[in-house]
Design a protein around this nucleic acid. Structure first.
Lengths: 215, 215, 215, 215
DNA sequence: CATGAATGAGTCTTCATTCAT
DNA sequence: CATGAATGAAGACTCATTCAT
């Protein structure tokens, strides 16, 4: 069993009511889906990787798609949204006086979340275009709820005249693009050359602060 | 035949040395791959959609993967890289005195390119993680060549002290993230609510100009 | 189910660890291969004849060629070589004083073996030219081992001055040709007219005895 | 074009009324059939090897099987039988006084014939079991006619009391087996070790002379 | 005549899923 | 609960053959 696999198993270990075999299946499926894509992964492959019989998969997950949803949905429903909410509360409770501090805290926090859930997020991003349920769930759990939350925050800092008075959607778009670009560079492109995370994060924050400063 | 299909056929009509059937196949495959993904699309499906026998596909494209590469490779090799190069030359030849003008021109030009090649670019983005050849081609044709060109341009404007003196890679990252975020919002997220393209483009440019202005 | 098929099934019934379906598959494949040749037999045909789903064949035999080897290899590895060895020991242990007695015993024994394994031997003979693995196995199991054994026997009778003092390879060639010609006539050519086996065997033995008598 | 191929083309060059392309097709098909078997050879393969378009094959030979028969039938109808007859006449005209001389002449003559037509004879042997037409033709052209001729000859020498007074069929069987075994050893088995043709031929003749001598 | 694009039935093989053990 | 043999529909791909050029 590879190191990667072990990490994946740990991801599902906190889940309750899951037998050892179920965790194995989820871990194996996650690894395979992330690597080859949902459609190109066979259930027999997952079974072999998980060390269970093919039938066992279907005892726990009615269909292959069910298995996908069982991996990806909780990530949105149970993990992502609540964590975000909780974190956001923390963020606000701390009452970061400056938008810059809020930004720095968020970036750090999301970076950690990403790091820990990379394979599942990969699957989510790759499969969303092909599965209507996923798209709906995403819009419901992430889209609407998270967006609403962010709007409040943006408006909070706009009221304090720390950031430019554009529509909050636009501010979120610009901020999110910049942040996602940072993470994408780190995980998709960077590996090769010298990537100094801290420095790049700081540059990104300064860029955002300047770009969003009130005119 | 749907309107979408007709548009796709037009995309391949300019290609020379392709029979009518080949163009049908490419259009059908492009539509299907973009819609369901490469792995989830069957060759029989493509054949039906293209109005040809399944065998006909394999007369022209040795394997299903060959068909994918025949759609996506020219997009990189023949279309993307050269167009970018040519456009960039135009950009520089025009000697946009201000970085802002360059930015505006680029954004407009790329938006048009995207619009015209959306389905193929979709496929490219979705399939790159699963096909080593695509990744290699992308790095070779887009990654290295385009990046090099952009570096020169960034350094040109840095020398003119119009933009901040960060490493050109960082400037490119920030600019590209913001631009891609703009396009992504337009194509993936926006459709629903009122999206005023011109305004958003202008806001994005202002954001970039401020974010990248020399301190 | 034809009588032939039943006979074939009996051939595989002694094999252990084979399910009923596997035996059906082997019997059906043997019959089909013998009748139409390996390349001209389709797996769907075998499945139908065996009364199983096509997928079932591939659960037990990874490829069609695997199925061929599973029929033909054991015939060489497990059956032919050992039986020959055992029989030859019996032959020598009986210490047939006269070469003629040895010849008669061998002919009778091999005739029985042939009779029982005719279809598989047909396949073996027909497919050997097209499958390198078969050729190699044949050389290893039959060619070298059997030939070595025969040489010893020939030399034994040469030492006793019962047969002519030619190179043992030549004696084996002449004897084998004559024996195989006998069997070939029986199975390939004869069926039609009156074929008195006993008489022909005796004539063949007399022919060999005279042909190989010391000058 | 390989040396083998050139030889094969020469084989068909004497045929009249055949265009260059037809000869190419026959040569290519002969080589391919002999190498991989009829069923495992595709017409496209033959077309490529012959340097013609696929359609060209079907212009000259209605079906693939037709092509097989066009290669193999003349070998029996035009070449084999007549040659045998003519040769046999020569043999008898020479009035070989001794059976031994006849045997030696025949062996030499057939060896040459085999040598020159090896690939086609290979195909004939391999495909006869699977094609009823071939079997019929063989029986008609070779079986009956040749057998009848040989019978006369055997009886001729029996009358002269040079060979044993067994049924002529039996004498032919014994002689043919021995001769075929000689050729088989030469072409199928021998290549490896030192095979002294002349010596082996002589030994074979002596073996036959002794085996068939009147008691 | 020769071509080679087109065909669609057919090939081997894989798949998700079921069910008796 | 877990298993893995069994399934048959579907997958990618090949084939012999046809026909317009």
């Amino acid at each position: 069993m590879s190191k990667q696999e072990l990490n994946l198993k740990e991801l599902f270990i906190q889940e309750d009511g899951l037998t050892e075999k179920q965790k194995n299946i989820l871990a194996a499926a996650t690894e395979a889906f992330a690597e080859k894509g949902f459609a190109a992964t066979s259930t027999s492959e997952i079974a072999k990787k998980a060390g269970v019989a093919e039938g066992t998969i279907f005892r726990h997950y009615k269909t292959k798609k069910d298995l996908l949803l069982s991996i990806v949905s909780p990530m949105m429903v149970k993990l992502m949204a609540p964590i975000i909410m909780k974190d956001l509360n923390k963020v606000l409770d701390h009452r970061y006086e400056k938008f810059e501090d809020f930004l720095r805290a968020m970036l750090e926090n999301r970076a950690k979340f990403l790091q820990e859930n990379l394979p599942i997020i990969r699957i989510l991003i790759q499969e969303i275009p092909f599965h209507a349920e996923l798209k709906e769930q995403f819009i419901e759990h992430i889209g609407i709820r998270v967006l609403t939350r962010f709007k409040e925050i943006i408006e909070y800092y706009q009221a304090k005249e720390q950031i430019i008075d554009l529509p909050s959607e636009t501010v979120i778009r610009l901020t999110a693009s910049t942040a996602l670009g940072l993470f994408a560079t780190k995980y998709v492109i960077a590996p090769e050359d010298g990537w100094d995370e801290c420095v790049e994060v700081e540059r990104t924050i300064q860029f955002l602060m300047c770009g969003l400063s009130p005119r």
